[in-house]
């Protein structure tokens, strides 16, 4: 059926654009940074901004893959260019945050970062511990739902294709695509007897709040370090967030 085909395409788009396979992430989930390694990170991060640059780099790599995911999503490239950009600009970081639940070990609150699982401690040099904790809380709440790969694929697609974003030119066309994705997702959940997932998903506002916190933290960081060259951050990161 067309809906079944859509489901397959969403899953394939997602699998083709994943940085790491879920099996590998599962296998390595107890491979954590040692105390010494965390100290080394913190020492290296001492010049202002080193850790910010590092995280911005990793985030930008993840966002580039979100763009590839979007391009492979059925119907996305048929949207007008303005709307493709609006959806990615508003949704790319949200998709990365959703995907983070695959790379998160809820049992010891660590996330896969640069080759190993890292606790929030590793990111202390960023100077925004509360924000990092909120991200970890979000990943933990999503992890607790034990989503399958197909479910994460649909969650990402639906975070991206959201007709409620501001500045869309052809809202109706986006709404149509969103509607198709929602129907396919519901069918998948019914087939796998996972309908209880929908009411348990974190509210959209939570993702939005994390993204605005990110912007606030970045602005605060840039205010604190006015001498930092804009070129310290990857161009795509600058384009999206500054």
């Amino acid at each position: 059926s067309p809906m079944e085909q859509l489901t397959q395409k969403v899953l394939r788009s997602y699998q083709e654009t994943c940085q790491l396979g879920s099996e590998e992430l599962q296998l390595r989930r107890w491979d954590t940074f040692s105390r010494e390694e965390i100290c080394t990170y913190q020492r290296q991060a001492r010049p202002p901004g080193k850790m910010w640059q590092r995280c911005a780099g990793r985030l930008t790599e993840a966002i580039q893959l979100v763009v590839e995911f979007a391009k492979r999503l059925p119907g996305f490239l048929e949207l007008c260019q303005n709307d493709q950009i609006v959806l990615l600009k508003a949704g790319a970081l949200e998709v990365v945050l959703v995907q983070m639940c695959r790379a998160f070990n809820g049992e010891n609150r660590t996330v896969f970062f640069e080759g190993k699982y890292a606790s929030a401690e590793l990111f202390r040099a960023l100077g925004c511990h509360e924000f990092i904790s909120s991200i970890f809380d979000f990943a933990q709440s999503l992890c607790a739902l034990h989503c399958s790969e197909s479910e994460v694929a649909f969650l990402c697609a639906l975070v991206l294709v959201n007709a409620n974003r501001r500045w869309l030119q052809d809202q109706l066309q986006v709404a149509r695509l969103q509607g198709q994705l929602e129907v396919a997702f519901r069918l998948l959940l019914r087939r796998t007897q996972r309908e209880e997932l929908l009411p348990r998903l974190p509210p959209q506002a939570r993702l939005r709040a994390l993204c605005s916190q990110h912007l606030e933290q970045l602005q605060a960081f840039l205010r604190l370090h006015p001498g930092l060259l804009p070129s310290a951050f990857p161009p795509l990161y600058r384009e999206l967030f500054t």
Binding site: V67, E68, P235, E239
Partner: peptide, 16 residues
Amino acid sequence: KEKHKILHRLLQDSSS
């Protein structure tokens, strides 16, 4: 368009 030229380029690039 000018403001989002990298995003624009990534979207246009069919080889990636």
